[in-house]
Design a protein around this nucleic acid. Structure first.
Length: 253
DNA sequence: CTCTTTCATAACCCCGCAAA
DNA sequence: TTTGCGGGGTTATGAAAGAG
């Protein structure tokens, strides 16, 4: 989904003012999930897993809703083998709510059903904290940037990458979520040696050198480049068949 | 000289896939 | 079927740097 509001419109205008190329391309909006909780969980799923596995875990979480054995990818979910559309239309959004996860038995079952590994405890803790009111997720979207940043950092299992990723979903683009994908990107597109990305200091210097001029929009500038990189390989992402989605990653160095 | 903050390193956890 | 290896962000821990 896209955020569409006067405030978001303003942010895009400001971004495009400091990034003329983005204006020319009409780039500035970032897709997110229907709920913040879903974005938060998906950000956790990105950690310590190849892209394909992240997708599988998200799918498995959606499958929690189906008590029978219907699988989202079983062939009878599609109108025909070549057609992805049917699958997309018939899915709807089955991502579980915090309440559903919090009430969903125990960590081991959640782990077993969704193959989450250590992420099960993080996600369960998040869902339970939201349910018992310790984490007031509803206020997050209205929160001031720096306060939000601090609050997210306090959540168990949420480090720099996860937090930056969620900030981006909410609409703050100051911090770039750095993962191996980013390191590969900086190497291929900007010729940065991956050894320079190992230490925090140097890493920050590299980011500042390349994206510093975009101020609070670093993340958008990076993301535009990265999407461009992907699309040069697989074609327009918006036209990519669902079945090929898991292939959208940067090859290893 | 002590207290605080920042930083670097290693342990953690464990699946998916390819080769044997 | 078994074995080995690659993938990968967070956190605990202790050391180093900075503040006062």
């Amino acid at each position: 989904m896209l955020r569409i509001s006067g405030k978001d419109e303003k942010i895009i205008e400001e971004f495009q003012r400091v990034h003329p190329e983005a204006k020319k391309k009409g780039f500035g909006r970032v897709f997110r999930s229907p709920t913040l909780f879903e974005d938060m969980v998906k950000s956790v799923l990105l950690c310590c897993a190849p892209w394909k596995r992240s997708l599988e875990m998200a799918e498995a979480l959606c499958d929690l809703q189906f008590k029978n054995k219907r699988r989202r990818y079983s062939s009878n979910n599609y109108c025909c083998k070549e057609c992805d559309e049917w699958g997309i239309i018939s899915y709807g959004n089955y991502f579980p709510s915090p309440k559903e996860i919090a009430n969903f038995v125990d960590e081991e079952t959640l782990n077993k059903k969704c193959n989450l590994g250590y992420r099960a405890s993080i996600i369960l803790h998040l869902a339970r904290s939201i349910e018992n009111g310790t984490i007031k997720i509803a206020e997050f979207e209205e929160e001031e940037e720096e306060k939000l940043f601090l609050k997210l950092n306090k959540i168990k299992g949420f480090g720099p990458f996860t937090v930056a990723n969620i900030m981006m979903c909410i609409g703050f683009y100051r911090h770039i979520p750095v993962d191996t994908e980013t390191i590969k990107h900086l190497h291929k597109v900007h010729g940065v040696e991956s050894s320079k990305m190992r230490k925090k200091r140097q890493r920050e210097e590299v980011i500042a050198d390349i994206y510093g001029k975009y101020g609070p929009f670093k993340c958008l500038a990076y993301w535009m480049e990265h999407v461009e990189y992907y699309e040069n390989i697989v074609g327009k992402l918006s036209e990519l068949p669902h079945s090929q989605y898991s292939n959208v990653t940067t090859p290893n160095l």
